[in-house]
Design a protein around this nucleic acid. Structure first.
Lengths: 97, 97
DNA sequence: AAGATATATCGACTTTTCCCGATATGCCAA
DNA sequence: TTGGCATATCGGGAAAAGTCGATATATCTT
């Protein structure tokens, strides 16, 4: 758990927004049907209004820090929040930072 | 409480370090005598090993975001952690982000 | 095997952040 | 009121992050 990298990942409006959206996938991505593994890049990109490459980079950055998990299913990659990471971060701030 | 600005403030190694030091002023700044109001800029600057201007900027940045408070006493400015801000941030991460 | 689609990576450009030296401001003591 | 500290602010050069378009890779369909 690299504090500094996590805070950097959270230091961007769009990335914070994406994390919010991923709290309620059904509500925020009504076009997608199944949410078992998360939401796919294309859906997120569309909503974010940035290019595909940018959003893809953002997601893989957040995955490297552990804030989200990625699951490849066929040609799609589904991303979802890693709630354990948020719980751990919350505790870290409470006690160690 | 501006999430984004707080995360930006926490996205720097030196600033994180300073916040750590300020958790235990007596231990980390043994040269200073009274800690009622916090630790003065000069002490922090010396320990950080960056220039006076840089450290001063870092501290006032963290003050603007609410992570620390500043108290001017004579020619010194004492900074200390604002524990409430950390508690609030911890809760925010737990429930809203 | 070829074309279509979803995602990832690369190279480049712009904007922001980092960090410095120089200078200004505020406060104290003589 | 002048000189000396402590801190703050300003201007700038270097490094990092943001963002794009182009291209590569992976997978599915036919």
């Amino acid at each position: 758990m690299d504090q500094l990298e996590i805070f950097k990942a959270l230091s961007n409006k769009t990335r914070l927004q994406i994390l919010q959206w991923l709290k309620e996938p059904e509500k925020n991505f009504p076009e997608q049907k199944c949410f078992e593994a998360g939401v796919c890049v294309g859906q997120i990109q569309q909503k974010a209004g940035l290019t595909q490459s940018t959003v893809s980079e953002y997601l893989s950055l957040m995955q490297r820090t552990g804030l989200v998990t990625a699951t490849r299913v066929g040609q799609w990659t589904y991303y979802k929040r890693n709630e354990e990471a948020f719980a751990a971060l919350s505790k870290l701030i409470e006690s160690e930072i």
